[in-house]
């Protein structure tokens, strides 16, 4: 390797480390100040405490919001992933007229500002008198999760040999049995990845829930309502630290699942 190339690599490595610091330092201030005794988020740190984590356990509105968020995130991730399994199969396994158009339509929610999705659903639900609440947030979140689920599952389905499905059909299994006994086990890591991704998108989504949740506050909407009160900020920081740890575990877990999927499918499938 030439000196120039090695130098370039050295610069890029130090740049990469600096960039990671830029990504992490602001986020890590949240857990840091969540252990601060003072309610003011400022240096110097007055002393260390766990008391703000204690307030998390007592706040009933927070528990309610957490419950709503979990209900919404689980429902929308399951709905979006289920719809996406079938749609992704249609887009990767077959070639037909109108396929690209159809794919373009289901991917649309990805390229629209979320506030547009929020206000347009607000108007529709208001006009047809369906009202607002958990159900309306689920509709909005399923919609915005759908393109992500389809993208994840399409890449998984493109990765395995379609001859396996055809072999099953040729050996006399019906399409339904083939799906459950051949396709589903092969795409399972993709399904899990899609569920985790869409769960996180929904759990974290703010603006659609802000417009559509009404009194069924979700966790982000609850956090938003707390940000205006300086005395409640330490509790929000403690909550943020918990979310941080929880998501880190989730990401590492999903990566582990994905790797196991690769190993299990074996070189015959992953050539």
């Amino acid at each position: 390797m030439s000196t120039i190339a090695r130098q370039g690599r050295g610069y890029r490595a130090s740049y990469a480390v600096l960039y990671l610091a830029f990504l992490y330092v602001p986020v890590l201030f949240l857990p840091l100040f969540s252990f601060n005794q003072s309610i003011y988020i400022a240096f110097p740190i007055e002393g260390w405490t766990f008391k703000w984590y204690g307030t998390l356990l007592e706040n009933e509105r927070l528990h309610e919001a957490l419950g709503n968020s979990l209900e919404i995130a689980i429902t929308s991730s399951v709905l979006a992933t289920t719809l996406a399994i079938f749609a992704a199969k249609a887009y990767t396994r077959y070639r037909y007229r109108g396929q690209r158009l159809s794919l373009g339509v289901v991917m649309l929610p990805m390229v629209l500002p979320e506030i547009i999705v929020g206000v347009s659903l607000l108007i529709l639900l208001n006009q047809i008198g369906l009202g607002l609440g958990t159900h309306s947030v689920i509709i909005g979140h399923t919609l915005i999760c759908l393109p992500f689920a389809i993208a994840v599952l399409m890449s998984r389905m493109e990765g395995f040999d379609r001859n396996l499905e055809e072999a099953s059909l040729d050996l006399g299994e019906g399409p339904v049995t083939t799906f459950f006994r051949v396709t589903l086990p092969l795409i399972l890591p993709g399904v899990v990845a899609s569920l985790l991704l869409t769960f996180t998108i929904s759990f974290d989504e703010f603006i659609i829930a802000f417009f559509l949740s009404a009194t069924d506050t979700t966790l982000p909407v609850f956090i938003w309502s707390q940000l205006r009160f300086p005395q409640r900020l330490p509790t929000v920081l403690a909550l943020g630290a918990c979310i941080l740890v929880f998501s880190a575990i989730l990401v590492v877990f999903s990566e582990w699942i994905r790797r196991r999927g690769h190993v299990k499918a074996g070189p015959g499938v992953w050539n």
Partner: peptide
């Protein structure tokens, strides 16, 4: 026999959601 019919049937539920929860609301908007 027909890939077209299979394709449209499998993608229909997803398409329905996008049309009902996005296309119609945007039309109304």
């Amino acid at each position: 026999q027909s890939e077209g019919i299979r394709g449209w049937c499998l993608s229909a539920p997803a398409l329905f959601v996008v049309i009902a929860a996005l296309a119609v609301p945007i039309g109304l908007l």
